[in-house]
Write a protein that binds this DNA or RNA. Structure first.
Lengths: 248, 248
DNA sequence: CGATGAGTTGAAACGTCTCAATCTACGTGG
DNA sequence: CCACGTAGATTGAGACGTTTCAACTCATCG
């Protein structure tokens, strides 16, 4: 396993090396063989390094590429008058951004780095060409888009049914799971987004989020100190989230 | 233009005729040329007629096909213990169902006819094969999936920001728009789903939905009588929905 | 070291939900 | 064809949870 701290040294080259990327099982190349991987690498335009707060693309710009996050984290959001109106998602390494822009040909949301981040750029028309040539790539593209739809619909379910504690619990359980998928601790991680962002994302006031963190801490479910979170009782958190469906 | 009342006569044949389908601009074949259309038609397995309340597929079943609605309307929903837990969407003619199942290979939601409905079945592996052969089909598939993601995210935005009146207004404006796209009246249409379904879908109690319909009617925005709805002031409804962003 | 923005906490106001009663339309069987 | 039963829809009143507004604390950074 490679230490993430070493990655910053190898970010800037125009060429990429999917074969040795630790995210290969999460990003596009899954189930694509060696030869196909080589073709895919040629499609990737370059990597880009983003500083905290820097924008990758903006709502309304002409769509040309999807991006895979290599390190760091990002948020996507809608805007009006340069102000953030609605946070639509938080994104971790291995996840693809801008899949929703394919249909309209225009970025639907803006994307901003929550901390120093690096991304791989996939020009979409080249990806499409490759999809026609290589069945594995088409498959994977469709699969990833489908997973995205699945995820977005589950988000809809979350928002309709749940009370505030259930929403925050779901959010934390989901983050925990995603960190675990990336080989990081599922019990202890860094919240790179603000309370206001979390609240906005979940449809809650930032004060409510703050109160809930306090409450969860009092109930021994988690420890929170500013941006660092430790989960003590994942099972209870999942119960709060409405998983473990208590048989009616 | 063909009268929908004539369609019921031509439903049952195993073969289809996308060329003369009035939904050709909404369904898969958009931007696919004549020759490609012929190939697509061979992929469509058959049409199926569903009675009100009949299920097209169930959550958990192995995924094999996506479906296009030809006439009627359907709802998709999650279940637990045979009870509807969460309505995830209402679907009109020309819309594709089960795109979210591609990723997991299993239907994520159940689909049930809200009224007599007919659907075209597209076995997905054949569609995928065709996508590799015909660039237009791949394009269209990706585009439709992207549009779905876009739609689902906009749903997220809706739920986070809005009050109950804004949610119902958005729902009605959205329905109106979709009916208009299908060549039907944007001002007067039939609500094939129950108040409970609407409430469930929007994350509101059915009583709240009912009260809001009454309130909207008192404010002269709409007339509702049971399942039939007439919109009197679409603009005000859109304002309520938070469109026409009043400049801050 | 003071300024700034993020986070926390409290109290009151508001909106939506729940529970319950009533009403309406529709399909079924007498 | 009417009467009845049932499910859906409406309306009212009280309970509850979340938001809003405001004051305050704490960390961070110039």
């Amino acid at each position: 396993m490679r230490r993430p701290s070493q990655e910053s040294k190898e970010l800037l080259g125009p060429n990429v090396d999917c074969r040795h990327c630790s995210l290969v099982t999460l990003c596009l190349p899954v189930a694509v063989d060696e030869a196909e991987l080589a073709m895919l690498e040629r499609v990737i335009k370059h990597r880009r390094l983003l500083a905290r707060g820097e924008e990758l693309f903006r709502r309304g710009e002409r769509f040309h590429s999807v991006y895979a996050i290599k390190s760091g984290s990002m948020k996507t959001f809608t805007t009006a008058d340069r102000k953030v109106v609605q946070v639509t998602g938080f994104h971790l390494p291995g996840e693809l951004l801008a899949l929703d822009a394919v249909g309209a040909g225009v970025y639907q949301y803006s994307a901003r780095a929550l901390e120093t981040a690096s991304v791989c750029e996939f020009p979409f028309n080249r990806l499409e060409d490759l999809g026609t040539l290589v069945r594995g790539v088409q498959r994977q593209l469709l699969r990833i888009m489908s997973r995205q739809i699945e995820h977005d619909l589950s988000l809809h379910v979350l928002h309709c049914k749940s009370t505030a504690p259930a929403r925050l619990a779901t959010f934390l359980v989901n983050l925990s799971m995603r960190f675990a998928e990336r080989g990081l601790s599922r019990a202890e991680f860094h919240l790179s987004m603000s309370r206001a962002d979390i609240g906005n994302y979940l449809g809650l006031a930032k004060e409510t989020v703050s109160r809930l963190f306090t409450e969860f801490q009092e109930r021994q479910l988690v420890s929170v100190r500013r941006k660092s979170l430790r989960i003590h009782d994942l099972y209870k958190l999942e119960s709060l989230a409405g998983l473990h469906a208590t048989v009616a």
